[in-house]
Nucleic acid binder design. Sequence first.
DNA 1: GCCAATACTATACGATCATTCAGCAAGGAT
DNA 2: ATCCTTGCTGAATGATCGTATAGTATTGGC
Lengths: 197, 197
Amino acid sequence: MPRASAPRFTRMTSEDRRAQLMDVALAGLARGGIQEFTVDRICQAAGVSRGLILHHFGSMGGLLAAVYARLYRETTPNLASLPTNARLEALIEGTFAPKAFNRDTLNAWVALWGQIANTPKLREEHRRQYAAYVEDVSAAIAALSSTPGGALEARPLAKALICLIDGLCLQHCLDPAAMPAETAKAACGAFLAPHLG
Amino acid sequence: MPRASAPRFTRMTSEDRRAQLMDVALAGLARGGIQEFTVDRICQAAGVSRGLILHHFGSMGGLLAAVYARLYRETTPNLASLPTNARLEALIEGTFAPKAFNRDTLNAWVALWGQIANTPKLREEHRRQYAAYVEDVSAAIAALSSTPGGALEARPLAKALICLIDGLCLQHCLDPAAMPAETAKAACGAFLAPHLG
DNA sequence: GCCAATACTATACGATCATTCAGCAAGGAT
DNA sequence: ATCCTTGCTGAATGATCGTATAGTATTGGC
């Protein structure tokens, strides 16, 4: 009767299991910061044994970098599919939508920021994503620039806007009531108004 | 011959020892982030035994809150002693001076941000300091406001400026070359120009 | 129905974590 | 010169950390 009992565990495709572990790790970061990002807690929450993280990600640093990429992809507005003159508004709307602009999600971001300087794989991932982000925002701004030569200003303006957004996110994370989404959106609007038509 | 050997340790006043431990802990945060913030590393670097942190701070959370207060006091420009119409410029100059706007110092800030959500004592300390900070910056802005009724706008403008500053600091910390001090200062100038006389 | 590839388990390992606590010792007060 | 306050030591505790590894079990392809 070797087939009488159910399988002790289920095999997933490598891709699916990686996704599951990233989601569980992300939920931990959102809930309790970097203290929750441990082999024990993640594997227990995912219902798998301790060896699986190493098997799929090589190290905890590898998982952390993968989580960063996943969080970026899930919460950063995708502008590529939109007409260029609609992108800037979509960026602002998407950034401060409840899906992205909430305490838990931002908690995960802040926790990741704190690890970038000390986790080589994560730093690489961040620089790659950040460069693409600046490109996207620059293009969105340039498309709405009032002056023809405004394209020259789009890049520094994009960087400053990104910094403002990051700061607003940080503030909301540390004290949500002190920086609600509407206030944050208004701050971005006031920042951009003088530079656009 | 009980007096032949030198004292095994030197006693400090409680205040001096606390200051030393805060400095050592801060240096660790600046160098290696929150991973360096452990009893063993701090006490070994300070040349004291492991029991001393509990003796002076009650817990690691207590030390972390004290370190936050110390970092704030050491790197945030003190505006109170200046005439009101000189405070805003002093804020910008001081914020982006090498003493405050450098990778190590900002690394400590980012590491602390990552702990605020999960360390009650640190969160209290942050909210207290942040409230005072908003007051100071609001007053500095109001003093230069072009319109008489501009005082009504000073508070949200101050909050937005603080967010921009935080974002610029974060960016410099994660990739110093991508956000030099001059660029950061210019971004603040561009942000404020439309609102001031 | 068997085989081979590999997802997965489970334990062991050495290091490190924060906190506790009983008592030593330094140095100003008397 | 002795006392007393208290800064300080250092070992013990029990939990938890990331990584390594030997081997089991599942599942798709044959």
